[in-house]
Amino acid sequence: MNLTLPPKPKNSLFKKLRAIVITISIIALYIWTFLGIDLDWEKAINKLIQQFDKVIPMLFSPDWSATGEVALTMLETIFIAFAGSLMAAILAVPLSFLAANNMMGKYLSMPGKWLLSAIRAFPDLILAILFVVAVGPNAFAGVLAIAIGSTGMLGKLFSEIIEQIDKDVVQGMQANGANRTQVLFYAVLPQIIPEFLSYAIYRFEVDIRASSILGIVGAGGIGTMIVFASANDNWSQMGTILVGIIVVVTVIDFTSAFIRKRIV
């Protein structure tokens, strides 16, 4: 019996060329990376031997006397994330309409899209640095950084939702003589509100994580404690902080997942 495999699909010249170009650029990227990076292993390992006993066991024996302070700053972190993400959720709504293809047309929606991706290119921490310089080292700088940073992401997600709405309802209302405001309130909004809420709550989840590090640049929240604990080599306090972050993030993740499941 003659067993033969089915013939392999023929690749076009373009596809072959593309594969070769991609492979070469990936190899070049790795050569560049390994030539460029020079790690001082000896120093790092010496430091590790010296620090290991100071850090690792202490992380796992949290200093419970700091619980009160950790709870208070964690509360501030939650406030920063809440105020910031709510501001962002409100700001993102008009921007998302401006960036949606089916609301503004393909070309008019371009500036909105660019603005949103420009905002997203700034890491939260850089925004926080700018706002700390502007309004001083306090929690409000954190709120502003979170608000602006989240607007980019929320605006993009919102505009994608708007682009996916069911056009039939809109056309049906227009055919019956509804004006633009009526179409907006009775055809567009009911379709998008649940998903908007769901994403806003999801962003709150993300912002809890983001706002817990803003204190590193002086923008309030638990990050301030992280900086002090590491500067003082107080790793048991760092353990308490970690427990605080893990507990709060987990609880909020679960609650938010539960609420989002009910909304959508």
């Binding site: 290991f52 850090v55 690792i56 900086v227 790793w235 970690l242 893990i246």
Partner: peptide, 16 residues
């Protein structure tokens, strides 16, 4: 649940 910068702080404490 652990933010990236917190991990960095801990690893800087360990490795310098």
């Amino acid at each position: 649940t652990i933010p990236d910068l917190v991990l960095a702080v801990i690893f800087v404490g360990l490795f310098g």
